[in-house]
């Protein structure tokens, strides 16, 4: 292959490699279990399974554009679920309970932003600390137990459907659309990407960089809360650690997404692809009867492989 076509091939791998990997996964699982995996019912199953993760990961995308990080989304999701459940059980209306819990989770995100953007802690350390603290609050107020017997009308968010479409999937679509608008169509999105590219130049261009980062954490907190509410409704019970898997899976989805569509930048379509890769992996390996511990190992390996592949392609191209 001559150098020119080699460069082109690398460029294609860099932009589309992750997507091709995803399609490959679909093909492999469909070939191995043609009776079960590609069925309409299973596809619907996968989409419903990933909806909550997609909601949470959309928020994390916003934070990660500026080069920050949010480890606390899992704890926020759990906390919000517990708070909503307790409020409903205390007799408050379902809608009011949800709104209050969302407000609390958003505030928790803003507190992250305050600590990190204004307090100067690194995002990693800051959200590691708040993750621990928020998780502690969730355990404390729930006394470490699962909260059952929620009002029947709360079921609709996680389990209801609007004609054929599951409500949770509609919420996911709405979230992705809102985050897309925010990132690609607003001045705020431009500021976020500018800070991610060069914080000093952004500051010298008059951007209030700390405020922009603070808001990003607020957005992440809000969508973590929304994910937590949908999850609680889906499980129809609140557990103080129900959201824990979000922490790593959301970050993994955003990292996978950074390898596709846009060079090295977190972006919403990439995140969505990342979410589906993680979802399809989990579902497919389950169907093949592979043990969950092995699934974790494989998920980790795939993330390393995807990120390595795209960074190698990037280096070669230079």
């Amino acid at each position: 292959m001559n150098t020119h076509s080699k460069t082109r091939a690398l460029a294609i791998i860099k932009t589309w490699g992750t997507l091709m990997g995803f399609l490959l996964l679909l093909i492999v699982f469909s070939t191995l279990r043609p009776d079960v995996f590609p069925s309409g019912r299973n596809m619907r199953n996968i989409i419903e399974q990933v909806a909550t993760l997609a909601i949470v990961a959309s928020g994390v995308t916003v934070v990660m554009i500026t080069g920050d990080f949010d480890l606390s989304v899992g704890a926020i999701a759990s906390l919000v679920g517990v708070v909503a459940a307790l409020l409903m059980k205390s007799g408050m209306s379902t809608l009011m309970s949800i709104l209050l819990a969302l407000a609390l989770g958003t505030s928790a995100g803003l507190l992250n932003g305050l600590i990190i953007a204004y307090g100067g802690l690194s995002a990693f350390v800051g959200t590691l600390a708040t993750m621990t603290a928020y998780g502690g609050v969730a355990l404390l107020i729930s006394k470490g137990t699962t909260i059952f017997a929620l009002p029947e009308n709360f079921k609709v968010l996680g389990q209801g459907s609007l004609s054929l479409l599951p409500v949770s999937v509609l919420i996911m679509a709405f979230t992705v659309f809102v985050v897309y608008l925010l990132l690609e169509q607003t001045t705020y999105g431009r500021r976020l990407y500018a800070i991610g590219g060069n914080e000093e130049a952004s500051f010298l261009s008059g951007i209030r960089t700390r405020q922009v980062r603070l808001i990003a954490f607020g957005v992440s907190g809000f969508f973590a809360s929304l994910g937590g509410i949908v999850l609680t409704s889906r499980l129809f019970s609140a557990h103080p650690q129900a959201g824990s898997p979000f922490m790593l899976n959301a970050a993994a989805a955003v990292f996978l997404g950074m390898t596709s569509f846009r060079e090295g930048e977190a972006n919403i379509m990439g995140t969505l692809l990342g979410v589906f890769i993680i979802g399809v992996m989990g579902n497919g390996l389950n169907i093949l009867g592979i043990n969950t511990y092995v699934q974790s190992i494989l998920t980790g390996a795939i993330i390393i492989f995807a990120v390595l592949l795209s960074s190698i392609a990037k280096k070669r191209q230079k």
Binding site: T187, A194, G197, E200, A201, S202, G206
Partner: peptide
């Protein structure tokens, strides 16, 4: 270091101060 966001487009850089 201080003037440009190299990883973004010319359009975005020119309008960054005037959003």
């Amino acid at each position: 270091k201080g003037g440009l966001v190299l990883s973004r487009s010319i359009n975005e850089n020119i309008t960054l101060m005037s959003l």
